[in-house]
Design a binder for these strands. Structure first.
Lengths: 126, 126
DNA sequence: GGTAATATATTACACTTGTAGTCATCTGTC
DNA sequence: GACAGATGACTACAAGTGTAATATATTACC
């Protein structure tokens, strides 16, 4: 019973990432965590949180008279779904040449190369 | 003198891909090319083309009394810029997990896998 | 040269997003 | 228990998107 993932907008990703990284927290905690990364007013962040709650991406629990927010959707599921739709949109059929260009272009350590090769090996092996 | 790339919206990508794939063409050609891929009315596609022209992503030349449209921005530059902003948003700078996810997600033939592996081999050896 | 067909331009409209402001409420403090 | 300060709810508003419809201009054909 996989639940529909809500669409998470660009700015909302920043909030989700905070919630995924640290557990349940208050709006203020999120504001604090983001304060050195983005230049948004606290209100803006509150709005983003509310929208995420509406979308069902974040859940609220009352803790005393303050709310605590925590993510309601799985991080890797979101990343995967987002990646899939991105790949489909931008790369479409021509995935391989693009991937090739990317690999050529990327600045990878030997270890990272190994990791990627392992993925490919596994794919080939089936 | 690199020109600013306009932001291309999701649906607009479909149009750009047609223009990149086949050279200059009329609005109707684009409509025809897309007709089996999407369920948009021709008007909708015309609108998308107009917006792309406004944004400077597509240029118009008069051919007789019909317009011909062709892309005004480089495909790989767009792909690269789109990918960069995607990676920044979802993966936060770290390219390797993104690449890994791409590779996992991609539907690759054995031969394509070989090609990619060769690239990685060369990179490592280099 | 008038008319149907076709192409392009203008307009529409609701939803999402970025970026907040203002109003109402709860709570701890004196 | 009244009030200041913190917190959350409701409201705002323009730009961008998805998805077109209607109106106007151009042209090929008879």
């Amino acid at each position: 019973m996989k639940k529909e993932l809500p669409r998470i907008a660009d700015s909302e990703w920043r909030v989700m990432q905070v919630l995924w990284e640290h557990g349940p927290q208050t709006a203020n905690d999120v504001v604090k965590a983001l304060s050195d990364k983005v230049k948004w007013r606290p209100r803006t962040i509150k709005t983003l949180i509310s929208r995420l709650v509406q979308k069902g991406a974040v859940k609220v629990t009352e803790k005393g008279y303050r709310y605590q927010y925590s993510s309601a959707v799985d991080e890797s599921a979101c990343i995967q779904s987002e990646t899939k739709s991105f790949v489909r949109r931008v790369y479409q059929e021509t995935m391989t040449p693009a991937l090739a260009a990317f690999l050529e272009d990327a600045d990878l350590s030997a270890q990272e190369i190994d990791e990627l090769q392992e993925i490919l090996d596994k794919k080939k092996g089936g």
